[in-house]
Simulated scan of single mutants.
Amino acid sequence: MTPRLVATDLDGTLVGRDRTVSPRTVEVLHRLDAAGIVIVLVTGRPIRWLHPVYDQLTVRPIAICANGAATYHPGTDSIVHSTPIEPSTLAEACERLRAKIPGVVFAVERDGGRQMRHEVEFPVGPWEVNHGSVGPVSYAELLTRPAAKLLVRAGVQPADEFTALVGECLDGLAEATNSSSSGMVEVSAVGVTKGTALARVAREHAVSALEVIAFGDMPNDLAMLTWAGRGVAMANGHPAVRAAAHDVTSATNEDDGVAVYLETHCFPPVASP
């Protein structure tokens, strides 16, 4: 199958542990673009974390970020579609979680993740300390504006079990998923997933699900992989993702798994005459 659209997650999929995209992967994406195949980056990352990836590529595809809550156009530096959690829903979600989970703390990604605001107790990565777009606010202030994502922590937690608990608390109100083993749960507006966002982008390009190959490695990729005509899990992927996918790469993200797969399935070698 030669796809008309290739969608790929970033961390654990296209990007290595050192946060780089390999030259081989850069070249394969360039070949896809030259062949007229639509490329879509589909990530849990906020917008402020996208530019280090774009800086490594020779193409600048659109990005579905914040697990589907915002679609970003790098050429115009604009959000072309947004489905945030509204303040009233955000407040109800946080109150439900505070009532059920001891020690729970929150952060929110705003404006597609151009800004992050967090409770003082919420642990923030060292790369974001003293970052102008990231800062602490009171619990009340956290709930005053729409949020692309609500981030939930409660100390050290087993990722899948904690995600299930948060999802149970927010059933019918919001979507809960996770993209790491750190015990942080990522919450989006009800119905917002990587899959629903990718389906919308595909429709805008007159591309059907059967014409899409999608790559991912973690539970937040499941909706995208099961929607696509060919959902491909990474060899290093979460067991549930590998089990649900149509195919699994032969190599991990550290060994150019996406590039190897695309070279094999989209650019097969030409037979000698």
Rank of each mutant, 00 (worst) to 15 (best):
A214S: 09
A202N: 00
T226L: 09
V185M: 01
A251I: 09
E254R: 02
D255I: 12
A206P: 08
A244M: 09
V212F: 03
E175P: 08
G216A: 10
H265E: 06
A259Q: 04
S188W: 08
G172F: 03
E211H: 00
H265Y: 12
E175N: 11
P219S: 14
W227M: 07
N253L: 12
A209K: 03
T226I: 14
V185L: 06
R242A: 10
D221A: 14
P269V: 07
Y261S: 01
V212P: 04
V187C: 04
S188D: 11
A259F: 00
T249F: 03
M218Q: 14
A199T: 07
L210S: 15
T264D: 14
L222F: 01
H238T: 06
D171V: 11
T177M: 09
Y261K: 02
S179D: 04
E211F: 07
N236I: 05
T249Y: 02
G216R: 00
A189K: 05
E175Y: 15
E254L: 07
S250D: 13
A202C: 06
F215K: 01
A251N: 13
E175I: 05
D171G: 12
L173N: 09
A214F: 01
G191A: 05
K194H: 04
T249R: 06
V260W: 12
V201T: 11
T249H: 00
L225M: 07
V241F: 14
S272M: 10
E263A: 02
S180D: 12
G172S: 10
T226C: 09
N253V: 12
D256G: 08
S182R: 12
G195K: 03
T193R: 06
A189T: 07
A244S: 13
F267P: 03
G183S: 12
D255F: 15
E254G: 05
V248G: 10
P269K: 03
D221P: 05
S272V: 13
G237T: 08
E186L: 01
A209V: 12
L198S: 06
R200I: 10
